[in-house]
Simulated scan of single mutants.
Amino acid sequence: MKQRDIIIGLLVIIVWGLNFIAIKLGLQDVPPLLLVTLRFVFACFPAIFFLPKPPVSWPWLIALGLSINVGQFSFLFLGMKMGMPAGLASLVLQSQAFFTLFVAVTWCNEVWRWNHLLGLAVSACGMAIIGLQQGGNMTIVGFGLTLAAAACWGIGNIIMRRATLGVPPFSILSLIVWAGVVAILPLALLSWLLEGPAAWLTVFHTPTWTMFGSIIYLALFATLVGYGLWGKLLSRYPAAIVSPLALMVPLVGMSSSAIFLGESLSFAQSIGALLVMLGLVVHVLGGCWNDKKTKVETLTTKEP
């Protein structure tokens, strides 16, 4: 990977890591479902008028919007509102890698590899340790909702894979924006029904700079800039090279949350976090070792 692209990748990781601080700050003034709604309103308009619809059928586009944008972000924002620290949320959300594998195995008939099983076992131990540390700076409800967000993200990953199978190349940003538009109405209805019109009136009548800053960061930087640059990297390099960079998001999320929000992990939570990260590394990078080993075996068995 070229030095310029490494810098771009690191910039995206920083933007996405700080995203959890923006969510936490925004939730101080805006109800969670309304905050998600406003995120996509400002991210999709006017961007949708400049991005053509991706070559994905409407049923797949709707499924993608409901799973990732409605499901993932609703559960994540609710979880963080109900006691999930921003740093731990950035880590637990990465369990989407294992939910993606579960869905892929059952839906797409993919097979388990040693690194998948070992990574899952190690990360599951870490998640169990974190989950048992309820109270203090984390609630079990917030932890459960964040896991539900990761599950929705995993389902959405497989939907995206199936939706884009065999279609011509397109901009990932256009897919994000169009799937975001699909999510706006369901999110707005959920917010209106569950949070109530009074919450909407309070937000619109008493806006704050924190609210504006949070929405702008979530819509412009975390969504448009983040996914736009990520899409450029994926268009230049194989996913196996780009995807491992995402393992750095929890590191940025936890360190920045400690610096800016004063969050801290207990000793047990720190052990759990290390186990989760170790499991994710084995899960993602173990496949590369498998591929290298296969190549070596193939070369050594060739006839001279």
Rank of each mutant, 00 (worst) to 15 (best):
I62G: 11
I129Q: 02
G79M: 02
L189R: 00
L118H: 00
M80H: 00
L220K: 00
L25T: 03
Q96W: 06
L187V: 12
A188V: 04
L78A: 04
L278N: 10
S57Q: 04
L280V: 03
Q28E: 15
F45T: 09
A97F: 14
L275H: 15
I48E: 12
L187R: 14
G279H: 08
P85C: 07
G65T: 06
Y227R: 10
A128M: 13
L193Y: 15
A97C: 05
A163F: 00
L64F: 06
I172N: 09
G226I: 11
L93D: 08
N19V: 11
G272I: 03
V182M: 14
G83S: 09
D5K: 11
L118K: 00
M127V: 15
V111Q: 15
P52A: 02
G144E: 08
Q72R: 06
M82N: 07
Q28G: 08
L34C: 03
A179L: 09
K295D: 13
E303T: 11
L78S: 06
L61N: 06
I62F: 10
L194A: 07
N109I: 00
I13W: 02
L261K: 00
L218I: 09
S264C: 02
T210Y: 01
L76C: 07
E195I: 00
M277Y: 09
L218F: 09
S191H: 09
W60L: 05
I129K: 03
A128R: 02
L233N: 13
V141Y: 15
R162K: 12
L201V: 14
L35D: 04
G231T: 14
